[in-house]
Every structure is written in C-alpha cells, then in structure tokens.
Design a protein around this nucleic acid. Sequence first.
RNA 1: GCCGGGGUGGCGGAACUGGCAGACGCACAGGACUUAAAAUCCUGGGUUCGGCAACGAGCGUGCGGGUUCGAUUCCCGCCCCCGGCACCA
Length: 827
Amino acid sequence: MADYRPQALDKKWQERWTSARAFEVTEDPSRPKFYCLEMFAYPSGHAHVGHVRNYIIGDVMARTKRMRGFNVLHPFGWDAFGLPAENAAIKSGIHPETSTLANIAHMKGQLQRLGISYTWEREFATCEPTYYKWNQWLFIKMFERGLAYRRRSSVNWCEKDQTVLANEQVVDGGCWRCGTPVTTRDLEQWFFKITEYADDLLESIEQLGQWPDKVLTMQKNWIGRSEGTRVQFGEIEVFTTRIDTIFGATCVFLAPEHPLVEKYAAESDDPAAFRKRAIAFRTQDRTARLTGEIEKEGFFTGHNVVNPFTNEAVPVWIANFVLGEYGTGAVMAVPAHDQRDFEFATKYGLPIRVVVQPNPAVGGTPKKLDEAYVDYGRLVSSGEFTGLTSEAALARMGEWVEQKKIGKRTVQFRLKDWGISRQRYWGTPIPMIYCDTCGIVAVPYDQLPVELPKVTNFTGRGDSPLAQVPEFVNVPCPTCGGKARRETDTMDTFVDSSWYFYRFCDPRNDTLPFEPARAKYWMPVDFYSGGVEHAILHLIYSRFFTRVFRDLGMVDHDEPFKHLLTQGMVLKDGAVMSKSKGNVVDPDDMLQKYGADALRLYVMFVAPPEKEVEWSDAGLEGSWRFLARIWRFVDQWCDAARGAPSTATFGAEGLNQAERQLRRRTHETIRRVTVDVEQRIHLNTAVSALMELVNDLYAYGETLTIGPPRPQARAVLREAIDALVIMVSPFAPHTAEELWERLGHVDGLTKTPWPSFDDQAAKPEEIVIPVQVNGKLRSRLTVPAETPESELRALALADSAVRAHTDGKTVKSVIVAKGKLINVVVA
RNA sequence: GCCGGGGUGGCGGAACUGGCAGACGCACAGGACUUAAAAUCCUGGGUUCGGCAACGAGCGUGCGGGUUCGAUUCCCGCCCCCGGCACCA
C-alpha cells in the first residue's frame, strides 16, 4: 500500500495544470460566467498563512464553480507601488523596482505551491508602465470632466513618511501605515471629486444585499449624510440640522479657519492680538480638536449679525470647537438645545433661551437648565411657528427660509474629496504640466505613459523625489511649446487598486484600459474576498471609479462587487501575525511537512471564513489525517470501484439495506456540500459533511470484509468515492486529482462536472421522530418515512416511555411537526 | 452618545424557515492490533443526582422577564466583548 505522500503530488499536478493552461478562459456567451476575485496583493516579501487564507477561500469557490459549469475568471496580480518599498530603498539603497520584482517572484511561487487555480496568463503588476499608463489616462479623463482638480488646502501630513495622507488614511489621528500623529500642512494638491457621487454612493448601499452589514455600516458612517438648512445671519452663512430651534439662536460661532476671521481681525482694535488668538486655536492639537478632548474656548469678534427669524442682533464669536471643513464653518449657537453651545454659553455668560418644550409639556418653562434639552418637542416663543412640533417646524421653517431667499435646505456630507497627490517616488506620475502662459495642461494622450524616471538616490526628504530629475521636470508645454514644468507628485496607490478588477477582463489591451464588451461580459465581480481593513478605503474608491467609468460610457453597471466576503485574520499566540512580533507562520514550512492540501483543508475547516482564527499545528495535523484517511480508503477499494457498474443499473429493490444507506448518505452529502459552498459560503461545514461521508464509508467498508464485493456494492462504492473525490477537490486538489487518476478516470478533475444530487436516492426509508411530553424529550419513534400523522399520533400515545409521563393526566393536544417531532401536551 | 456584529462543552465550532442543543474536528480517556511504542481501527464523554450497569431524573446556549405546545433562534429590559462613526452643528 502506497503511503500518502502529498509533497510529490503537489508538484506533479501543479506542473500538469500549468502546461495545460487549465485555468485560462475566454468570454463564452453560451455559459454562465463567474468572476471570482481575491483582493490582489501588496508584494511585501513573504505571504503568511493569514494572507494565504483569503486565496484559498477564493480558490475553493473558483474550483467549485468551474465544476458546476460556470465559465470562471480567477485572476491575480500585484498592487506593486507603495511606500514600504521606497522606505526600504532609503535604508538599504536597493531600488524599489528591484525589491518589488523580487518580492513578486517569491510570493507568486508561494501561491503556485499552494495550487491556487489562477489564470496566471492575466497577471500584471501596477508598477508596469502598461498598467499605470491607464491611471494617467483616467486621470486626464477625470480632469477634463472636472472630477480631478487642483487646489491649495490644509492637508493631513505624516512627518515620518514625509507625505500627504487622504482622510481615509488617518486612523485615530495617526498615519494608517506607521501610526505617527498626523499634522497639517498647506499644500497645492490634486483631488478627485468623490463628493460628486456622495448621494449615489450612499443610496446604492441598499443594492449591496450580499455585502456584510458591518461594511455597509462603515460606509454609511463614512459618507455621513445629514439633512439641514443653510441660513444667512447677515454676512455669515450657517449650517444647521435644527432650524426648529432658531428662535433660541443667541449667538453665532465661527471656526478659527473661517475666511471672515481675517476681516474681523483687521477691523478690530488690536489686529495682531486677534490673529494670535485665532491662530492659537487653529494650531491646537488636531486630534484633540477633532475628538472633543479640549476645553471649549472662544472670544467675541466685536461684530454682531442679525438672526433672520427674530431680527435681533446676535454677537459673533470665534470658537475652537467649530470645524472649518464641515458645513459652512459657522454655526448658530442655541445654548438651550445643544449641549456644546450650552456649556460654552454657561462659561461665557451668553443668553440661554428655551424655544422647544418636551411634548407633551411637563410644566412651565424651567427657570434654570442643568443641561440642554436636545430632543424634539413643541415650539414655544417662536413667533408664528409657536405650537408646531419640531418635525413640522423643520419643514415649515425650511420653506420660509427659501421663500425669503436667505438660505436653502441642503444635504451635508462628512465625506470629503479624495486628495491623491503624494510627495513620493514609487507611484504613478501625475500626467500634468505647468506652463507660465497656458497654466495647467494635461499631457496629450498620445504621449502616455509618462514614465517614472529611474531615480537612484533616495533621501527621504520632504520634497518629491521626481523634482530632482531635471530631464523629467523640464519639458516643453504641449500647447504653446514654451518652457514648462512637469508635476512631480505621484498618485496615491489607492488609485491603482480602484479599478484593477476591470483590467483583469482585458489585461493586454494597449488602446484602452479595457474593452467595454469584455468588461460587460465579466463584470461585476461575482465573489470578492479580502480583509475588512479595506471596508472603507479601497471599497469606496472602487465604487467611485465604477461610477466614473459608467459616466464615461464604458460600463453599464453601478456596483463592481456583487458578493463581498471579509475574511477573518489568522492569529498566532493571540496576536496578528507580523514579522516584528516574530509570530509568522510561513505556508512553505507547512507545505514541506504536510503538503498544500492539508494546509488548504485545515484553513477552510477551522472556522467560517469571516471569523478570526487562532493558528493550531494540531489542527493542521488533524486535516492531514483526514486526507490520509481518504487516501487509505480509496487505496483499499480502488480496484473494486474502478469500472464498477452505475447505481442506475440496479433498481432500488436491487440494493440491500446497507447499500441503500450508503447511497442515501452519498446524495445527502452532495446536497449539503453544494449548498454550503455555493450558497451559504460555509466552507467549514462543507468539510464536516465530507468527513461524515468518510466515516460512513469506513463503516460501510466494515460490512464488506468477507469475499469480493458483489456488483451492487461496487456500484454504490464507486458512486460514493467518485462524489467524495470530486467534492474534496476544491479543498485538496492535488490529492483529489491523484486519486481520480487511480480510479481510472482519464479526464482530469478540471474537466469533470460536479456530481448531481438525486432527491429519490437521498430519501430515507425510515425516520426517527423524537417525542416530547410538554416540551421535554421522552422517547423516539422509528417509523417508515411516509407514516401518516394519525398513526404517528397513536404510536406516540402508546409508547411506554411517553405513557410513564402521561398516565393519570389529561392529554390536551398532540402536536405533530411534519417529519420533525411530536409533542404531547398534558395537563 | 449613535450605528453594526457577537456571547453555545476543556478548545475551534455545528444547529438551514421556532422543532432531538453540542454535528465535525482538536485535546483527552479506554479498547483492539503490537514483544513494545508510533501509526491505524473501534469506543466514550455538557453537567449534577441515583444506579455495578443498561438506564432514569433534574439543570444547561451571557443575565432577568415575555410570547409559544415547544426558544440558541422571536419580543422587551439589562450585562459584557469586538468593529465603525463622533465637539459633524
């Protein structure tokens, strides 16, 4: 008997798949398509089992769908630009391109050794000019439509990485990459106008029925829609969501960044002191200011404006807690009905006027408030609006404002435009040229790509490395031919990953980013999996780019990803694996010990794909044992099964009880595994079902020890073994292929259809029905499957164990849940 | 504070539409095979009480209530853990 030696099988079958180009596909309108995608990889060097889990999940889906008759696109590529490679270059002097390509080569080898069924024919890396050319093309398209624009603004800045960060890249006030506290700088930057699509992005969330709630919530929170009204208080426009409280607005607060601050400073008695105080607010720790951990402070500007509802003059203050970047940068202060305004007003002795009462009213107007009343209620002291509920007042007062032309009802978003300029080298050059006479000019399409020049000296200084290359910077203006300068910033690498899934549809196209007809066939991605850490950044940017392509007329769908799975992390010793912690499990070590299939199977079996799991060597060994158990069984019964007649040859009555039983278990397992993998994505229970079938096979094997099996036995064995080998193949493809070959099949598993489920064969002849008395289990009835309800009722009442609990009592009713359970209710 | 997810044996987890709680695996224990061990095959196990045992009775899915013949599942009120947003006007 040949022992199970998976390592040799891995190599043998990987070579066969490669030489047969077994996973390359073309558009085929006659078959349903399935686009299966795992988030492509940043080539950090080595993939650990946490990374690899995601690729295995995708591979199980892809391999299953292929056998289920789908035309499956399952590509892979590399998110190859990015800071770590450049930071390494500053330290080691190794050029980012060199290290990136080496890392890709290594990681590709790791994935191939795992037998992931990628169509490597479509592989690309985003650092290739043939890819980033289309980033530039798209940038210019967006520039032409006003979706890419340049402005000076205060931006998030990471001192350590010496570059700008998008809002999405600031996590808890620190850099998402290194955690360094984020500061601000004023810089000229390129922005993508994602806010143009804020409503669209938010509303379409309802269409994402196959995305996890968690991710939808995060996106909703991130977009942060609120309805309100903009109103002029004289020359100051404020934004409020509570216009129903406007009769209580006794003050107006400006953000220290507000444009009027400078004007008021100039008009004040001591402009220098005024400015100094405002600047002090502006430079207060950004994180603390954003999270409200600072003391509320402010000062009077010396100016008053008019509350348009009361026609009273109200003072204008500058307050440190008002944010310049949200709304209009100015708020009306209603101390009685907003807790922050209340605290501020109490501190500085500003008037507090109650204009909303709880509804129904709880006594008269309180003399003194302890805190703001922030709930909705009924309006008091509000002129013609007095007596309205808050809800009614919001509508009526909004209309009033619009009639008087002093403001309008609007929707405000938290989402801001996406700053994409990065003062770094290893990214896509922004294809723009600055000419003194013509202004900002796009590089003509026929001059794309603007190639990244070879810079060899990485200093890590704050200016763009590309600025050090005069041949790159100094170019003639495309419009007038005069002297001009190139943009020296590169694009945020999240631009690269926002549309790569379209490129996989047509990766070698050199006239367009992709042929619309091809994208139409393959898109949207049917199954997309990756880490939750991309729930906001990557997934919102990709949805934005899809809308840009849509509005360019290149695609006709709104959403790029139909089903999203956020895979859980693999922990070691309770912590996320990382090189610095030294708790990394390298898949290659596991492959050497147990082979690719045991690793694949274990990672799928240990927990549902979206759950975090703790790595366990013992668990891996258990999965290896399961494969060896299949191996031994097939080895023992291979000859009997090979060439056995089909079960269809024998009528149901031709099979004995054990044979019918095995057949039933086979078909039950087909049903369970198919549903678990294809519909429920419960890959762990699919594996359990296969384990149960193997246990059944062993039990059946016990009954066959004497003499050679009869044809009927060989038939049910063959059916069970074939189904088992096919169904285990998405999890353990190398072992399965080898067994399949030994079973005498000529076509490999990549060309074999999934077994079909026979409802009749799966139907049990006898069923066990639990019998409860008053909801407590007392007995079980073993009866023919089709026993009528009346008979079940009689049998249950006659059962001795049941009668022990019913004798001497009145049977009130007998509930029969069809095929499931009987409950006798007694008093 | 607001929004979302979760809490089940020693451990990972299962229970699909309200119907036998703990499938499957890990670890553990016992048996068979073996001179012995490993490997393999078989068996056992939520917990308490009674019994040599087969078995029987009670309790049991974070806590407290409720609906129901019946609740891990539905409803109400709490506690705890994880994730997101948050001086956002």
